[in-house]
């Protein structure tokens, strides 16, 4: 019995910030069977494992529009504001983001600090 290859050679998406790692099945802006839906960035996409419907997709992440590292869509790793920005680039260019986002991030920072201490 040979080890089956579909597991090993599967395309893996690895977030450069949180090292979340999971296989993806599609990269681009038009995942299969999404009809009228179009993604506004090139995304790493997989089938939504939590939906019984086989055709539901799940966006895992994409490349940062500034530094181009792959990052997951998790709030701690990136934000999307017309484009994808990894958290590192967000922090670097915080001033360019609207105040709503700045406030939101500041609030998050405070609460996560509280959570740690």
């Amino acid at each position: 019995m040979e080890p089956t290859t579909d597991e090993v050679s599967q395309n893996m998406f690895n977030c450069q910030l949180c090292s979340l790692s999971t296989p993806f099945t599609y990269y681009g802006q038009k995942p299969p069977n999404t009809r009228a839906i179009v993604l506004l960035e090139e995304c790493f996409v997989t089938k939504d494992p939590f939906s019984p419907d086989r055709e539901r997709f799940l966006i895992l992440g994409s490349n940062c529009s500034v530094c181009h590292i792959p990052v997951c869509v998790g709030a701690g790793c990136s934000i999307f504001y017309t484009k994808r920005f990894c958290m590192q680039c967000v922090n670097k260019h915080m001033d360019q983001f609207p105040s709503q986002i700045q406030d939101e991030l500041a609030k998050k920072k405070r609460s996560s600090k509280k959570g740690v201490s």
């Binding site: 839906i37 506004l40 001033d95 609207p98 709503q100």
Partner: peptide, 28 residues
């Protein structure tokens, strides 16, 4: 802050809209 020199201009829209946070669009 706008005036401050930044290395790159991210080209973000001036007015905040929740819509800009969503990376999906629906063409109908």
């Amino acid at each position: 802050e706008r005036d401050r020199k930044t290395t790159i201009d991210l080209g973000l829209p001036k007015d905040y809209d929740g819509r800009y946070r969503i990376n999906i669009s629906v063409c109908t």
